[in-house]
């Protein structure tokens, strides 16, 4: 049985269910309590579970993320909300030096059942300091898992799985997706947290993407289909680890790879995806893999320039047409 939920509601349900079934789950962050969360994700939970389990924090990202690490060491299951990923830069010590390394440095003695949720991405004219993506920064850290839900269903599943996991998990939520509705089956058995989803099958090219861009990739595939170009759309759902098998199987069929990402092109997630699939699937490929990515530029405040700094559906369509030889190469 499914119901229509917006992303924030799906996350709210997931948190609520986990909190009600496991007393070691608690959440903390700026304005998660009385205010109910900047994107409403923790709405109602403070009233239901009280301030010890839904804690409003000072503006001390390094401190309260580190607090989450400490609590996780004792077997608690903290869900830290960092108001936006831009502020996670102040918590990188806790995330990278502590959460990702303590289980390893201790020779495997400690679990790290820590979840860190952070909204990110380019939203609407929030300017350079508030429009970052930063997935590459976190992907380069062994010991972290990174989930990138694009649908309310995945947001629901992946938050629940993240809370249940004994590994540190970063949930990258896209700011423009919180109020997008989608069908959610609360009872269905979820796929593994890192398993990629094939959003649409096709034979002419493989379009690999994640988070909000996966939705744009699906729209691009609809347009391409009208032109008789059949794109297979893969939503990675997880950036660490990455489900290479699903990608490789698709390339075996389509022989062409296009990656769409919102983050800056240089040294981004797309670079890793293409490098690894090149190594792994070189003899399957009929053309050089291509990338559609954000410009290597801080996000401009002006609306037109902001829109031009990240890929849109038409950019993906164009790159796909080029890849299958329907349009002149650049």
């Amino acid at each position: 049985m499914t119901e229509t939920l917006q992303c924030w509601q799906a996350l709210n349900r997931a948190l609520d269910i986990e909190m009600s079934s496991d007393e070691s789950v608690f959440t903390l962050g700026e304005d998660v309590g009385l205010y109910g969360g900047t994107y409403r994700v923790t709405e109602g939970l403070n009233a239901k579970y009280g301030e010890w389990r839904v804690r409003d924090t000072p503006i001390s990202e390094g401190g309260f993320t580190g607090l989450g690490v400490g609590a996780a060491l004792t077997g608690m299951r903290p869900v830290v909300e960092i108001m936006t990923i831009n502020f996670a830069l102040l918590a990188l010590d806790a995330i990278i030096n502590m959460a990702a390394k303590i289980p390893f440095m201790s020779g495997g003695q400690f679990p790290m059942p820590l979840v860190i949720r952070m909204p990110g991405g380019v939203a609407r004219q929030l300017a350079a300091q508030h429009s970052q993506r930063l997935e590459h920064t976190l992907m380069n850290v062994p010991g972290l898992r990174i989930a990138v839900p694009a649908t309310p269903q995945d947001a629901y599943w992946q938050l629940r799985q993240a809370i249940a996991s004994d590994e540190p998990v970063i949930l990258l939520e896209h700011e423009l997706l919180y109020f997008e509705p989608g069908e959610v089956d609360l009872a269905a058995e979820p796929p593994p947290m890192h398993q990629a989803a094939i959003r649409r099958t096709g034979t002419d090219l493989t379009l690999v993407s994640y988070s909000r861009m996966a939705n744009l990739a699906a729209q691009a595939a609809d347009l391409l289909a009208k032109d008789n170009i059949r794109a297979e759309v893969i939503d990675l759902r997880s950036l660490s680890p990455i489900d290479w098998d699903t990608c490789a199987a698709s390339l075996h069929k389509t022989h062409r790879l296009l990656v769409a990402e919102e983050d800056c092109r240089f040294a981004g997630a797309g670079a890793e995806i293409i490098a690894t699939l090149n190594e792994r699937c070189f003899y399957d490929l009929d053309a050089a893999p291509a990338r559609v990515a954000g410009l290597d530029m801080p996000t401009p405040f002006n609306a037109e320039l902001e829109a031009a700094s990240i890929p849109g559906v038409s950019d993906i369509v164009k790159a796909a047409r080029r890849l299958v030889g329907r349009e002149k190469p650049l």
Partner: peptide
């Protein structure tokens, strides 16, 4: 004053 690059907060 910042050519539209920074906006209100910058």
């Amino acid at each position: 004053v910042c050519k539209g690059m920074g906006g209100s907060m910058h």
